[in-house]
Amino acid sequence: KTVKFDGLQFDFDNPEKALKFALEVAKQKGAEVHIHGDEIKIE
Rank of each mutant, 00 (worst) to 15 (best):
V3M: 00
L8C: 15
E24N: 00
E39P: 01
I40Q: 02
F10C: 14
L8G: 02
A18K: 08
E43N: 08
I42V: 08
K20E: 14
Q9K: 09
K1S: 11
K20F: 05
V33D: 05
G30V: 05
G7Y: 05
I40T: 04
L23F: 12
G37C: 15
F12K: 00
K20H: 10
A26W: 00
G30L: 07
V3C: 03
Q28Y: 04
G37D: 09
L8A: 04
K17G: 11
A18V: 01
E24F: 00
E16V: 06
V33G: 03
I40C: 10
D38L: 09
K1N: 09
K29R: 12
A31V: 09
I42A: 02
D13S: 06
F12C: 13
I35T: 05
I42L: 07
K27G: 08
G37L: 08
K4F: 13
V33E: 02
E16L: 08
D13G: 03
D6N: 10
A18W: 09
K41Q: 11
I35G: 02
K4S: 10
K29N: 11
K20A: 12
H36S: 11
L19V: 01
I35A: 03
V3P: 01
K20Q: 13
E24A: 08
P15S: 12
K27C: 15
D13V: 06
D6T: 00
I40R: 02
Q28D: 08
F10N: 01
K20L: 11
H34M: 10
G7F: 06
K17W: 12
K17N: 12
D11L: 12
K41P: 02
N14R: 00
E16I: 09
Q28E: 10
G7R: 04
G30E: 06
A26T: 02
F12E: 01
Q28W: 03
D6M: 10
Q9T: 13
I40D: 01
D6R: 01
I42E: 02
G37W: 10
I42D: 02
K29I: 14
K29Y: 13
A22C: 14
A26E: 04
F5Y: 11
G30D: 07
Q28L: 11
V33H: 00
F5C: 15
K27L: 11
L23V: 11
D11S: 09
E24L: 00
D6L: 08
F5W: 07
I40Y: 06
E39N: 06
T2F: 06
K1G: 05
Q9A: 09
K41Y: 15
E43R: 09
A26V: 03
D13P: 05
V25W: 04
D38R: 10
F10R: 01
V25A: 05
F5K: 03
E39C: 15
E39G: 05
T2K: 08
L23Q: 13
L19N: 03
K41S: 13
V33M: 06
T2D: 01
E43H: 10
V3S: 03
E43V: 13
D38E: 08
V3L: 00
I35C: 15
K41H: 15
A18Q: 01
P15T: 12
I35H: 05
I35F: 09
D11Q: 11
T2L: 07
D11M: 12
F21D: 15
G37Y: 07
D13Y: 04
D11K: 10
F21N: 14
E39W: 09
E43G: 12
N14T: 12
A31R: 09
Q28C: 15
K1R: 12
E16W: 07
E32M: 13
L23T: 13
K4H: 11
E32K: 13
A31M: 14
K1T: 14
K20D: 15
D13T: 06
I35S: 03
A31Y: 13
E39Y: 11
D11C: 15
V33N: 02
P15Q: 09
D6A: 07
K17H: 12
H34N: 06
V3A: 01
F10K: 03
T2A: 04
A18E: 09
G30M: 07
V25Q: 05
D11W: 15
L23E: 15
G30I: 05
L19H: 01
L19S: 01
A18F: 02
D6W: 08
F5M: 07
V25T: 05
G37A: 08
F21E: 15
Q9F: 09
I35Q: 05
Q28V: 09
K29E: 08
E39T: 12
K20G: 04
F21P: 15
V25K: 00
A22I: 04
D38W: 09
A18L: 06
A22Y: 06
F5L: 06
V25I: 13
K1W: 15
